[in-house]
Design a protein around this nucleic acid. Structure first.
Lengths: 204, 204
DNA sequence: GTCGGTGGATGACATCTGTCATACGGGGTG
DNA sequence: CACCCCGTATGACAGATGTCATCCACCGAC
């Protein structure tokens, strides 16, 4: 049937990918034409099989779903992309939408729902899980300046101020100022909880 | 058929749980008798349906797979438990085995393999994914004492010493001692990198 | 040109952390 | 019993961190 939507499934969890392929194959207007277990593989398979829709897991070895979507947008514009994620955080959603992703759903949806969303995306529309969207909206825009976010990111792995200063080419004092203001903007107790909060809200 | 293995599936990701149920149902010696989307629900369903084998996701809301396994061991000893995990870290494996879990596999296995492993577990044998086992062995035993690990865990979310002390019912000075010794044992620069290292090695 | 805003820096100060020595009670082991 | 390790605690001290006020240079707007 030439009407069938050609799908690429990319997920590093074989169990899920296989199960998903089996369930989606039950829908007679959906055809899984390729599967991949990593970011680079997904890209290669997409270019080889030219699917209509790419269903990408967010967390994959090599390159995450959003990077793959970005590449696909450039190299195979005819292919719509959508992200499926285990435990989604709003930051990824924002990144994904900026990358041109048309669908963003958690893995808590059922196969029926997923099939329906695939059709929606294939029709050129967008679909974002309402709950994730609400989270993203309630998280709002980052109150951090570019520098504050940069410094906060460098602080993420527990590096001391001196190291952050070196890596950011700033004076240690300045780094402490930025961290201090970031911490107070986020209402955190110290930079480490600040990093955590910013991560949760997708601001770094 | 009375020979069929009665299964409980617990996973908060509807997509995966449903798909898994569908695939496992294809094996005619396996029957899914209950599904759950959270830790407490898994426990309740297990007690209600008395499955032979419980297939538990590691990450679930409410109570993780290992806690559920621990409770099951006590409240429904006839039920064998196994853990399926997305991105397994060795620490969980050790915890799981101590909780009496008989099978521990990553979601990268195929449905066929999983079915086979379920049979293995049901037969009273154990199965641990070779790669996860290798990781666990190479990570070795934790050099941390129980208290050090406890305190380190409380330090994980960036809480200040005072808060850790309160939550651990210890004096702040003692907390600092433990953190200090944990940091030096792990060769870290500060408690935060120590937390990260311990996490990577599965020691917390 | 003056004004204000922003990025960057400095210095001072209080507090928090990390480290160390020391102390004491309890549980094993020789 | 003596010894050692562990858990717990205290005190002391150096260094790191968080906070604040202040300052300078640059840039764009008025």
């Amino acid at each position: 049937m030439s009407e069938s939507v050609r799908l690429l499934l990319a997920d590093d969890e074989h169990l899920i990918r296989g199960a998903l392929a089996a369930l989606l194959a039950l829908e007679d207007d959906l055809t899984v034409v390729a599967e991949a277990a990593s970011g680079p593989e997904a890209l290669a398979m997409a270019l080889a099989h030219r699917p209509d829709v790419a269903v990408l897991d967010l967390q994959m070895p090599g390159a995450d779903g959003v990077s793959v979507a970005t590449s696909l947008r450039r190299e195979l514009p005819s292919c719509q992309t959508m992200i499926v994620t285990s435990h989604g955080r709003p930051g990824h959603l924002k990144r994904a939408l900026e990358a041109g992703v048309r669908g963003f759903v958690p893995k808590t949806v059922s196969a029926q729902q997923l099939a329906e969303i695939i059709r929606t995306v294939h029709a050129g529309n967008r679909y974002v899980d309402p709950e994730l969207a609400a989270d993203a909206i309630s998280a709002g825009d980052s109150p951090l300046t570019v520098r504050e976010a940069e410094v906060l990111e460098l602080a993420a792995d527990g590096a001391p101020v001196a190291e952050i200063a070196e890596r950011a080419a700033l004076s240690p004092g300045t780094v402490r100022n930025y961290l201090s203001s970031a911490v107070s903007k986020l209402g955190a107790e110290n930079r480490h909880t600040a990093v955590r909060l910013a991560r949760e809200r997708g601001w770094v």
